[in-house]
Design a protein around this nucleic acid. Structure first.
Lengths: 202, 202
DNA sequence: ACCGAATACCTATCGAGATAGTTATTCGCG
DNA sequence: CGCGAATAACTATCTCGATAGGTATTCGGT
Protein backbone atom coordinates (compact mmCIF):
# COMPACT_ATOMS: atom_id res chain seq x y z
CA UNK A 1 0.00 0.00 0.00
CA UNK A 2 2.71 2.50 0.80
CA UNK A 3 4.42 2.36 -2.56
CA UNK A 4 1.17 3.22 -4.22
CA UNK A 5 0.59 6.02 -1.71
CA UNK A 6 4.08 7.32 -2.36
CA UNK A 7 3.45 7.25 -6.10
CA UNK A 8 0.14 9.09 -5.80
CA UNK A 9 1.70 11.65 -3.48
CA UNK A 10 4.62 12.24 -5.82
CA UNK A 11 2.45 12.53 -8.92
CA UNK A 12 0.19 14.97 -7.12
CA UNK A 13 2.91 17.53 -7.85
CA UNK A 14 2.16 17.16 -11.57
CA UNK A 15 2.65 14.80 -14.53
CA UNK A 16 5.83 12.72 -14.82
CA UNK A 17 7.22 9.96 -16.97
CA UNK A 18 7.95 6.64 -15.36
CA UNK A 19 11.62 7.46 -15.54
CA UNK A 20 11.13 10.82 -13.77
CA UNK A 21 9.29 8.96 -11.05
CA UNK A 22 12.09 6.42 -10.75
CA UNK A 23 14.61 9.26 -10.48
CA UNK A 24 12.63 10.78 -7.60
CA UNK A 25 12.67 7.44 -5.80
CA UNK A 26 16.42 7.42 -6.06
CA UNK A 27 16.66 10.88 -4.64
CA UNK A 28 14.01 12.86 -2.78
CA UNK A 29 11.01 10.78 -1.80
CA UNK A 30 13.29 7.76 -1.88
CA UNK A 31 14.88 8.91 1.38
CA UNK A 32 11.59 8.35 3.10
CA UNK A 33 10.24 5.52 0.99
CA UNK A 34 12.53 3.75 -1.40
CA UNK A 35 11.49 1.58 -4.32
CA UNK A 36 13.43 0.18 -7.28
CA UNK A 37 12.40 0.76 -10.89
CA UNK A 38 11.40 -2.89 -11.23
CA UNK A 39 8.64 -2.22 -8.69
CA UNK A 40 7.70 1.21 -9.87
CA UNK A 41 6.98 0.60 -13.55
CA UNK A 42 4.60 -2.31 -13.02
CA UNK A 43 2.87 -0.46 -10.19
CA UNK A 44 2.36 2.61 -12.38
CA UNK A 45 0.74 0.39 -15.01
CA UNK A 46 -1.49 -1.27 -12.45
CA UNK A 47 -2.60 2.03 -10.98
CA UNK A 48 -3.26 3.25 -14.49
CA UNK A 49 -5.48 0.32 -15.27
CA UNK A 50 -7.31 0.93 -11.98
CA UNK A 51 -8.04 4.52 -12.88
CA UNK A 52 -5.86 6.14 -10.23
CA UNK A 53 -3.50 7.48 -12.90
CA UNK A 54 -4.00 8.59 -16.46
CA UNK A 55 -1.28 8.51 -19.12
CA UNK A 56 -0.43 10.08 -22.44
CA UNK A 57 2.38 9.64 -24.93
CA UNK A 58 4.78 12.56 -24.97
CA UNK A 59 7.30 13.18 -27.79
CA UNK A 60 10.85 12.00 -27.11
CA UNK A 61 13.48 13.25 -29.52
CA UNK A 62 12.94 14.34 -33.09
CA UNK A 63 12.19 11.00 -34.70
CA UNK A 64 8.71 10.15 -33.53
CA UNK A 65 9.64 8.25 -30.39
CA UNK A 66 7.44 8.77 -27.34
CA UNK A 67 7.65 8.27 -23.66
CA UNK A 68 4.71 7.83 -21.28
CA UNK A 69 3.67 10.62 -18.98
CA UNK A 70 1.46 9.74 -16.00
CA UNK A 71 -0.90 12.08 -14.17
CA UNK A 72 -2.96 11.59 -11.08
CA UNK A 73 -6.73 11.33 -11.68
CA UNK A 74 -9.56 12.57 -9.50
CA UNK A 75 -9.92 9.01 -8.22
CA UNK A 76 -6.20 9.06 -7.49
CA UNK A 77 -6.55 12.25 -5.47
CA UNK A 78 -9.47 10.69 -3.62
CA UNK A 79 -7.30 7.69 -2.79
CA UNK A 80 -4.57 10.04 -1.57
CA UNK A 81 -6.97 11.78 0.79
CA UNK A 82 -8.33 8.45 1.95
CA UNK A 83 -4.81 7.26 2.74
CA UNK A 84 -4.41 10.10 5.21
CA UNK A 85 -7.52 8.93 7.04
CA UNK A 86 -6.41 5.33 7.40
CA UNK A 87 -4.76 4.29 10.61
CA UNK A 88 -1.08 3.55 10.20
CA UNK A 89 -0.40 -0.19 10.13
CA UNK A 90 2.80 -0.48 12.08
CA UNK A 91 4.98 -3.40 11.07
CA UNK A 92 6.52 -5.57 13.72
CA UNK A 93 10.04 -4.63 14.61
CA UNK A 94 12.97 -6.09 12.73
CA UNK A 95 16.12 -4.21 13.52
CA UNK A 96 19.18 -6.10 12.33
CA UNK A 97 21.75 -3.88 14.02
CA UNK A 98 20.03 -4.04 17.42
CA UNK A 99 19.61 -7.79 17.03
CA UNK A 100 23.30 -8.15 16.32
CA UNK A 101 24.26 -5.95 19.25
CA UNK A 102 22.22 -8.08 21.66
CA UNK A 103 24.57 -10.96 20.88
CA UNK A 104 27.91 -9.15 20.66
CA UNK A 105 29.31 -11.75 23.06
CA UNK A 106 29.69 -13.93 19.97
CA UNK A 107 31.76 -11.37 18.09
CA UNK A 108 35.46 -11.87 17.46
CA UNK A 109 37.74 -9.30 19.08
CA UNK A 110 37.22 -5.97 17.40
CA UNK A 111 34.24 -7.07 15.35
CA UNK A 112 31.66 -5.36 17.56
CA UNK A 113 33.51 -2.08 17.34
CA UNK A 114 33.74 -2.44 13.58
CA UNK A 115 30.00 -2.98 13.38
CA UNK A 116 29.26 0.06 15.53
CA UNK A 117 31.59 2.28 13.53
CA UNK A 118 29.98 1.13 10.29
CA UNK A 119 26.59 1.88 11.87
CA UNK A 120 27.73 5.40 12.66
CA UNK A 121 29.00 5.87 9.10
CA UNK A 122 25.78 4.60 7.61
CA UNK A 123 23.63 6.94 9.68
CA UNK A 124 25.91 9.91 9.14
CA UNK A 125 25.34 9.39 5.46
CA UNK A 126 21.59 9.07 5.98
CA UNK A 127 21.62 12.20 8.09
CA UNK A 128 23.54 14.18 5.48
CA UNK A 129 21.12 13.14 2.79
CA UNK A 130 18.11 14.13 4.86
CA UNK A 131 19.68 17.52 5.58
CA UNK A 132 20.24 18.01 1.87
CA UNK A 133 16.58 17.42 1.25
CA UNK A 134 15.65 19.90 3.95
CA UNK A 135 17.98 22.48 2.38
CA UNK A 136 16.46 21.87 -1.05
CA UNK A 137 13.00 22.49 0.38
CA UNK A 138 13.96 25.57 2.33
CA UNK A 139 15.97 27.02 -0.55
CA UNK A 140 13.24 26.22 -3.05
CA UNK A 141 15.73 24.32 -5.22
CA UNK A 142 13.60 21.21 -5.50
CA UNK A 143 11.91 21.24 -8.91
CA UNK A 144 9.16 18.92 -7.72
CA UNK A 145 8.34 21.18 -4.81
CA UNK A 146 8.47 24.28 -7.02
CA UNK A 147 5.96 22.68 -9.33
CA UNK A 148 3.76 21.67 -6.42
CA UNK A 149 3.77 25.17 -4.97
CA UNK A 150 3.05 26.68 -8.37
CA UNK A 151 -0.10 24.56 -8.52
CA UNK A 152 -1.31 25.64 -5.07
CA UNK A 153 -2.47 28.98 -3.67
CA UNK A 154 0.28 30.97 -2.03
CA UNK A 155 -1.28 30.76 1.41
CA UNK A 156 -0.68 26.97 1.30
CA UNK A 157 3.00 27.21 0.46
CA UNK A 158 4.35 27.41 3.97
CA UNK A 159 2.12 24.59 5.08
CA UNK A 160 3.12 22.27 2.25
CA UNK A 161 6.81 23.00 2.71
CA UNK A 162 6.82 22.63 6.45
CA UNK A 163 5.25 19.19 6.38
CA UNK A 164 8.00 18.03 4.10
CA UNK A 165 10.69 19.51 6.29
CA UNK A 166 9.01 17.88 9.27
CA UNK A 167 9.15 14.47 7.61
CA UNK A 168 12.85 14.79 6.82
CA UNK A 169 13.49 16.01 10.33
CA UNK A 170 12.15 12.65 11.38
CA UNK A 171 14.89 11.05 9.29
CA UNK A 172 17.54 13.33 10.78
CA UNK A 173 16.30 12.55 14.28
CA UNK A 174 16.38 8.86 13.58
CA UNK A 175 19.93 9.07 12.30
CA UNK A 176 21.03 11.15 15.29
CA UNK A 177 19.54 8.60 17.64
CA UNK A 178 21.28 5.67 15.96
CA UNK A 179 24.60 7.50 15.95
CA UNK A 180 24.26 8.32 19.64
CA UNK A 181 23.35 4.73 20.41
CA UNK A 182 26.32 3.33 18.54
CA UNK A 183 28.66 5.81 20.21
CA UNK A 184 27.35 4.65 23.58
CA UNK A 185 28.08 1.14 22.37
CA UNK A 186 31.68 2.01 21.64
CA UNK A 187 31.97 3.41 25.14
CA UNK A 188 30.45 0.22 26.51
CA UNK A 189 33.05 -1.81 24.64
CA UNK A 190 35.72 0.36 26.13
CA UNK A 191 34.35 -0.15 29.64
CA UNK A 192 34.28 -3.88 29.06
CA UNK A 193 37.89 -3.73 27.94
CA UNK A 194 37.09 -4.69 24.37
CA UNK A 195 38.66 -1.70 22.71
CA UNK A 196 42.39 -1.45 22.42
CA UNK A 197 42.37 1.99 23.88
CA UNK A 198 41.71 5.62 22.92
CA UNK A 199 44.27 5.47 20.14
CA UNK A 200 42.24 2.85 18.33
CA UNK A 201 39.14 4.97 18.45
CA UNK A 202 39.89 6.81 15.23
CA UNK B 1 19.54 -14.07 6.94
CA UNK B 2 18.50 -12.23 10.08
CA UNK B 3 15.77 -14.65 11.08
CA UNK B 4 18.23 -17.48 10.95
CA UNK B 5 20.76 -15.41 12.91
CA UNK B 6 18.10 -14.62 15.49
CA UNK B 7 17.23 -18.30 15.77
CA UNK B 8 20.86 -19.33 16.19
CA UNK B 9 21.42 -16.61 18.75
CA UNK B 10 18.34 -17.57 20.73
CA UNK B 11 19.14 -21.28 20.70
CA UNK B 12 22.68 -20.54 21.83
CA UNK B 13 21.14 -20.13 25.29
CA UNK B 14 20.25 -23.84 25.28
CA UNK B 15 17.82 -26.36 23.77
CA UNK B 16 14.23 -25.33 23.06
CA UNK B 17 11.16 -26.77 21.37
CA UNK B 18 9.82 -25.00 18.35
CA UNK B 19 6.98 -23.72 20.47
CA UNK B 20 9.38 -22.29 23.08
CA UNK B 21 11.18 -20.52 20.26
CA UNK B 22 7.92 -19.13 18.93
CA UNK B 23 7.04 -17.88 22.39
CA UNK B 24 10.37 -16.02 22.61
CA UNK B 25 9.66 -14.36 19.28
CA UNK B 26 6.39 -13.09 20.68
CA UNK B 27 8.11 -11.70 23.72
CA UNK B 28 11.80 -11.05 24.26
CA UNK B 29 13.84 -11.34 21.08
CA UNK B 30 10.71 -10.51 19.15
CA UNK B 31 11.00 -6.88 20.26
CA UNK B 32 14.20 -6.61 18.27
CA UNK B 33 13.43 -9.07 15.52
CA UNK B 34 9.91 -10.36 15.11
CA UNK B 35 8.87 -13.47 13.23
CA UNK B 36 5.59 -15.40 13.09
CA UNK B 37 5.35 -19.13 13.81
CA UNK B 38 4.65 -19.86 10.16
CA UNK B 39 8.16 -18.62 9.37
CA UNK B 40 9.88 -20.10 12.37
CA UNK B 41 8.91 -23.75 12.14
CA UNK B 42 9.96 -24.21 8.50
CA UNK B 43 13.18 -22.30 9.14
CA UNK B 44 14.01 -24.51 12.12
CA UNK B 45 13.53 -27.55 9.92
CA UNK B 46 15.70 -26.08 7.15
CA UNK B 47 18.47 -25.20 9.57
CA UNK B 48 18.23 -28.67 11.01
CA UNK B 49 18.64 -30.28 7.62
CA UNK B 50 21.63 -27.99 6.99
CA UNK B 51 23.33 -29.12 10.17
CA UNK B 52 23.13 -25.80 12.03
CA UNK B 53 20.69 -27.33 14.54
CA UNK B 54 20.23 -30.81 15.92
CA UNK B 55 16.94 -32.15 17.27
CA UNK B 56 15.62 -34.84 19.54
CA UNK B 57 12.15 -36.00 20.55
CA UNK B 58 11.28 -35.09 24.10
CA UNK B 59 8.35 -36.66 26.03
CA UNK B 60 5.14 -34.63 26.10
CA UNK B 61 2.51 -35.79 28.61
CA UNK B 62 2.09 -39.30 29.92
CA UNK B 63 0.80 -41.04 26.86
CA UNK B 64 3.84 -41.35 24.64
CA UNK B 65 3.47 -38.10 22.75
CA UNK B 66 6.66 -36.21 21.98
CA UNK B 67 7.69 -32.72 21.02
CA UNK B 68 10.83 -31.73 19.17
CA UNK B 69 13.68 -30.05 21.00
CA UNK B 70 16.26 -28.18 18.93
CA UNK B 71 19.85 -27.46 19.92
CA UNK B 72 22.53 -25.42 18.22
CA UNK B 73 25.37 -27.49 16.71
CA UNK B 74 29.05 -26.62 16.45
CA UNK B 75 28.40 -25.59 12.86
CA UNK B 76 25.56 -23.45 14.16
CA UNK B 77 27.86 -21.72 16.63
CA UNK B 78 30.35 -21.21 13.83
CA UNK B 79 27.66 -19.57 11.74
CA UNK B 80 26.76 -17.36 14.69
CA UNK B 81 30.33 -16.16 15.02
CA UNK B 82 30.57 -15.64 11.30
CA UNK B 83 27.43 -13.50 11.36
CA UNK B 84 29.13 -11.09 13.74
CA UNK B 85 31.93 -10.63 11.21
CA UNK B 86 29.69 -9.86 8.26
CA UNK B 87 29.05 -6.25 7.37
CA UNK B 88 25.52 -5.15 8.12
CA UNK B 89 23.43 -4.98 4.96
CA UNK B 90 21.36 -1.87 5.55
CA UNK B 91 18.01 -1.92 3.82
CA UNK B 92 16.81 1.12 1.98
CA UNK B 93 14.52 3.34 3.98
CA UNK B 94 10.81 2.76 3.99
CA UNK B 95 9.20 4.73 6.77
CA UNK B 96 5.45 4.86 6.34
CA UNK B 97 4.79 7.42 9.05
CA UNK B 98 7.38 9.86 7.75
CA UNK B 99 6.11 9.35 4.21
CA UNK B 100 2.60 10.15 5.36
CA UNK B 101 3.75 13.23 7.26
CA UNK B 102 5.48 14.62 4.16
CA UNK B 103 2.08 14.84 2.52
CA UNK B 104 -0.07 15.98 5.42
CA UNK B 105 -1.41 18.72 3.17
CA UNK B 106 -3.74 16.06 1.82
CA UNK B 107 -5.15 15.17 5.22
CA UNK B 108 -8.69 16.06 6.21
CA UNK B 109 -9.00 18.47 9.15
CA UNK B 110 -7.87 16.70 12.30
CA UNK B 111 -6.52 13.65 10.49
CA UNK B 112 -2.86 14.63 10.76
CA UNK B 113 -3.18 15.17 14.49
CA UNK B 114 -4.90 11.82 14.85
CA UNK B 115 -2.03 10.13 13.00
CA UNK B 116 0.58 11.80 15.18
CA UNK B 117 -1.23 10.92 18.39
CA UNK B 118 -1.52 7.32 17.26
CA UNK B 119 2.20 7.38 16.46
CA UNK B 120 2.94 8.58 19.97
CA UNK B 121 0.77 5.84 21.44
CA UNK B 122 2.42 3.18 19.34
CA UNK B 123 5.91 4.20 20.37
CA UNK B 124 4.98 4.63 24.01
CA UNK B 125 3.91 1.03 23.91
CA UNK B 126 7.13 0.00 22.16
CA UNK B 127 9.12 1.93 24.71
CA UNK B 128 7.35 0.32 27.65
CA UNK B 129 7.98 -3.11 26.23
CA UNK B 130 11.66 -2.43 25.71
CA UNK B 131 11.96 -1.12 29.28
CA UNK B 132 10.32 -4.30 30.52
CA UNK B 133 12.95 -6.33 28.73
CA UNK B 134 15.70 -4.22 30.25
CA UNK B 135 14.19 -4.73 33.70
CA UNK B 136 13.97 -8.48 33.14
CA UNK B 137 17.65 -8.54 32.22
CA UNK B 138 18.78 -6.37 35.10
CA UNK B 139 16.59 -8.21 37.61
CA UNK B 140 17.68 -11.60 36.28
CA UNK B 141 14.05 -12.59 35.79
CA UNK B 142 14.49 -13.70 32.20
CA UNK B 143 14.67 -17.52 32.16
CA UNK B 144 16.50 -17.51 28.82
CA UNK B 145 19.16 -15.17 30.15
CA UNK B 146 19.47 -17.13 33.39
CA UNK B 147 20.09 -20.26 31.39
CA UNK B 148 22.61 -18.47 29.19
CA UNK B 149 24.51 -17.14 32.17
CA UNK B 150 24.47 -20.56 33.83
CA UNK B 151 26.21 -21.95 30.76
CA UNK B 152 28.93 -19.28 30.74
CA UNK B 153 31.75 -18.43 33.14
CA UNK B 154 30.83 -15.85 35.73
CA UNK B 155 33.34 -13.34 34.42
CA UNK B 156 31.27 -13.19 31.20
CA UNK B 157 27.94 -12.49 32.88
CA UNK B 158 28.19 -8.72 32.99
CA UNK B 159 29.35 -8.60 29.41
CA UNK B 160 26.54 -10.79 28.11
CA UNK B 161 23.90 -8.90 30.06
CA UNK B 162 25.12 -5.47 29.13
CA UNK B 163 25.05 -6.15 25.41
CA UNK B 164 21.43 -7.14 25.71
CA UNK B 165 20.57 -4.06 27.73
CA UNK B 166 22.42 -1.99 25.13
CA UNK B 167 20.33 -3.47 22.31
CA UNK B 168 17.07 -2.73 24.07
CA UNK B 169 18.30 0.76 24.88
CA UNK B 170 18.46 1.19 21.13
CA UNK B 171 14.78 0.37 20.99
CA UNK B 172 14.00 2.80 23.83
CA UNK B 173 15.99 5.52 22.10
CA UNK B 174 14.19 4.88 18.83
CA UNK B 175 10.83 5.14 20.55
CA UNK B 176 11.84 8.31 22.38
CA UNK B 177 12.91 9.86 19.11
CA UNK B 178 9.69 9.03 17.35
CA UNK B 179 7.61 10.34 20.25
CA UNK B 180 9.58 13.60 20.29
CA UNK B 181 9.20 13.93 16.52
CA UNK B 182 5.45 13.41 16.64
CA UNK B 183 5.09 15.88 19.49
CA UNK B 184 6.94 18.46 17.40
CA UNK B 185 4.50 17.63 14.64
CA UNK B 186 1.56 18.41 16.88
CA UNK B 187 3.15 21.73 17.71
CA UNK B 188 3.65 22.37 14.02
CA UNK B 189 -0.02 21.70 13.39
CA UNK B 190 -0.86 24.14 16.12
CA UNK B 191 1.37 26.80 14.59
CA UNK B 192 -0.29 26.25 11.24
CA UNK B 193 -3.67 26.64 12.85
CA UNK B 194 -4.68 23.05 12.26
CA UNK B 195 -5.45 22.16 15.84
CA UNK B 196 -8.58 23.42 17.47
CA UNK B 197 -6.65 24.83 20.37
CA UNK B 198 -4.97 23.68 23.57
CA UNK B 199 -8.16 22.17 24.89
CA UNK B 200 -8.32 19.75 21.98
CA UNK B 201 -4.84 18.50 22.67
CA UNK B 202 -6.02 15.68 24.91
C1' DA C 1 -15.80 -36.82 32.09
C1' DC C 2 -16.02 -32.74 29.33
C1' DC C 3 -14.40 -28.74 27.36
C1' DG C 4 -11.80 -24.65 26.48
C1' DA C 5 -7.18 -23.08 26.57
C1' DA C 6 -2.57 -24.02 25.89
C1' DT C 7 0.90 -26.57 23.79
C1' DA C 8 2.84 -28.23 19.50
C1' DC C 9 3.15 -27.96 14.89
C1' DC C 10 1.77 -27.16 10.05
C1' DT C 11 0.01 -25.34 4.96
C1' DA C 12 -1.41 -22.21 1.38
C1' DT C 13 -1.49 -18.10 -0.85
C1' DC C 14 -0.30 -13.79 -1.86
C1' DG C 15 2.21 -9.37 -1.67
C1' DA C 16 6.44 -6.89 -1.25
C1' DG C 17 10.96 -6.50 -2.20
C1' DA C 18 15.91 -7.73 -3.94
C1' DT C 19 18.63 -8.51 -7.58
C1' DA C 20 20.28 -9.38 -11.92
C1' DG C 21 19.55 -8.92 -15.78
C1' DT C 22 17.27 -7.12 -20.59
C1' DT C 23 15.96 -4.07 -25.00
C1' DA C 24 15.40 0.31 -27.43
C1' DT C 25 16.10 5.18 -28.29
C1' DT C 26 18.00 9.58 -27.66
C1' DC C 27 21.57 12.70 -26.28
C1' DG C 28 25.85 14.87 -26.50
C1' DC C 29 30.73 14.89 -26.92
C1' DG C 30 35.04 13.99 -29.40
C1' DC D 1 29.85 9.99 -37.56
C1' DG D 2 30.55 6.84 -33.65
C1' DC D 3 30.07 5.68 -29.20
C1' DG D 4 29.25 5.72 -24.35
C1' DA D 5 26.00 7.55 -21.16
C1' DA D 6 21.49 8.71 -20.17
C1' DT D 7 16.79 8.16 -20.91
C1' DA D 8 12.93 5.00 -21.09
C1' DA D 9 11.07 0.90 -20.02
C1' DC D 10 10.85 -4.04 -19.05
C1' DT D 11 11.30 -9.40 -17.23
C1' DA D 12 12.54 -13.23 -14.35
C1' DT D 13 13.48 -15.37 -10.30
C1' DC D 14 13.95 -15.80 -5.77
C1' DT D 15 13.50 -14.61 -0.80
C1' DC D 16 11.09 -12.80 2.90
C1' DG D 17 7.10 -11.80 5.20
C1' DA D 18 1.83 -11.38 6.11
C1' DT D 19 -2.15 -13.56 6.88
C1' DA D 20 -5.53 -16.82 7.30
C1' DG D 21 -6.24 -20.65 8.05
C1' DG D 22 -5.51 -25.83 9.65
C1' DT D 23 -4.70 -30.54 12.79
C1' DA D 24 -3.42 -33.03 17.00
C1' DT D 25 -2.44 -33.59 21.88
C1' DT D 26 -2.11 -32.30 26.54
C1' DC D 27 -3.42 -29.66 30.48
C1' DG D 28 -6.34 -28.14 33.99
C1' DG D 29 -10.62 -26.47 35.82
C1' DT D 30 -15.48 -27.41 36.55
Amino acid sequence: MSLRSALLALLSSGPMTGYDVVKQFSTSVGHVWHAPDSQIYPELRRMHSEGLLSSRPVPWGSRGATKTEYSITRDGEQALRHWQDEPEGYVRERDAAHLRAAYFEWAAPGAAATQLRAHIEHFRDQRAQALEQIAAIENRTSPTLARRLAANPEDQWERISRFKVFAYEGQVGRADQEIAWAERGLRLLEELGELDGPGERE
